[in-house]
Write a protein that binds this DNA or RNA. Sequence first.
DNA 1: TTGAAAGCGCTAACAA
DNA 2: TTGTTAGCGCTTTCAA
Lengths: 338, 338
Amino acid sequence: MAVTIRDVAKEANVSLRTATRVVNNEPHVRATTRQLVREAAARLGWCPNAHARHLVRGRTDRLGVILPDSRNTIFSDIASAIEAQAQVQSYDCLFLHSEGVPEREAKFLSLAMDGTVDGLIVMANVLKENHEIYTRLLEDRIPMVFRAGPETPGTVDLVAVDLEMAGYMATRHLLKLGHRHIGMILQEAAKERQTGRVDGYTRAHREEDICVHPEYRIYCGYRVKDGYHAMRCLLEAHPKITAVLCHNDQLALGSFRAARELGRRIPDNLAVVGYDNIELGRFCEVPLTTIGYSKGLLGQLLVDMICRRIKEPNHPSQRIVLPPELIIRESCGYAIRR
Amino acid sequence: MAVTIRDVAKEANVSLRTATRVVNNEPHVRATTRQLVREAAARLGWCPNAHARHLVRGRTDRLGVILPDSRNTIFSDIASAIEAQAQVQSYDCLFLHSEGVPEREAKFLSLAMDGTVDGLIVMANVLKENHEIYTRLLEDRIPMVFRAGPETPGTVDLVAVDLEMAGYMATRHLLKLGHRHIGMILQEAAKERQTGRVDGYTRAHREEDICVHPEYRIYCGYRVKDGYHAMRCLLEAHPKITAVLCHNDQLALGSFRAARELGRRIPDNLAVVGYDNIELGRFCEVPLTTIGYSKGLLGQLLVDMICRRIKEPNHPSQRIVLPPELIIRESCGYAIRR
DNA sequence: TTGAAAGCGCTAACAA
DNA sequence: TTGTTAGCGCTTTCAA
């Protein structure tokens, strides 16, 4: 069967202890002995068994990162940032895509319980179906940090973007451009837990004494096609709408085709604002005006938090809120004629 | 510390053996005893240690899937198909994104060596830097299957799409529409190992006795922005070009903005064809004409192959080639005026 | 139907 | 500098 470190020790005529010393780069081994063991390992093609190692060490130096949607590239961007910082902290990452399926998310959560990973970074969309499991994990002091809306309840480690401010900035931008009928395409899954965007939208309207139309809000899924259908419904139901705020860039991009099919031209007679600042938004035919935030900082904070939680399980929990930034490109055009 | 199955056995006043029988749903346990153990486990909040279990079992029932680019949604689609079939075969999947970085790919390959996964599905873009490692893995009979071009050498399990046919179909479509100056935006990384598209392109031209311009081919990276830059370069260098074949949809979508910046309107005076049939291609402003293939079948075959390889390490290797399909939408418009 | 005990491959406390 | 040995938490052979 597979060659073990015992075989290597035997081959090199040293004890098991010496062999492990060598393969783990521990000191107190004569250089010649070290060489001997190295050669034996290479000759036999020895490869350490991860399970044995993790079992005895009681840790894996591995982080699990639960992502909601593998098709939305914003999560790839954040994942990159997480991975970069994890490397700094000497951790490997396992990226896990729940795709909005509770059973999948639950399975990933069990990876923390069964020791496959040392801790979990959970990116948004905590599924309420798994609420019990989360509670249990938290009670069991399994290291976890969340990326979520600032309004998330509970005492957990968390980093968020100021969604109220994001909604406010985007809305104010549109109002200043002269828009008076601004729709919102929002994500159903975040309806209850992320009210920030709507709050900001409302505040911007109030500030200008402009009436808010709740019927201009439509809730949908998170896929590209959902953005398409949402835009169609919204525009067909409320043709007065001249601008739309989208929950994220993916939905915004999906909505472009619907606008065109209904005879709308972006930005000539329809303005669209996204959220996330994904790469494709810069390169689509009409570059997307959007809300951005520092993905690098987000990833870094998430990793640093989980690492601290792993090292100090009793450290008081912490929440950090990141500022959003309005990125003006072309999808809102210039001020509309009144 | 953590509660072990020993603790559970003690709590239930049974032996270790009986406890494992219960937690693994083995027969030969009296119903009342079973119940006793279950309750004890629940009371103690016992959770099996994955490493211990995998160590002794010698397997994990887990597959590693190496993907080249987390930002290209085609891989999300194929990953979904893989995961679905893996579930049928009772395997879990770990999705690993190499992002074109040799070190990352190498690290993932080691997951098969160290027993973290039972086998590996490698999606395209095998990095030549890791050629040695691949050779070693193959020699060590680590279960691996590849998704690659049909022209990939060696005796390995592999499933491919007929790229020559894909290139032929796309080119012929454009030629029939009247295009005579057809550019190609190709992926640098696949330049040497995937010549199929170019072969098909050439064949279609020959068939019509139309001259092939090698200078109409440009090679670039795989990101959206690479598609943008490639299209700019290509069109600026060769304004005669009226149609462009892209290595994949992601690149095609990235190229749209470049065309617009150069005063080209798709499809009015520029036709674009992609490859992969990603969701966004249906919903961008001008839906993308592209080459598709059965992602479901691709994923299924990949999984079935790796499972067979795991069960029968000495089974003769197999290669399967899937047929491509031309999906006509709007990005090529109608026949151009000559 | 139940249990005692060996051992998966590795690390690390302790001894020499 | 090197070696002996006891586990990590689990599965499984064999015996009762």
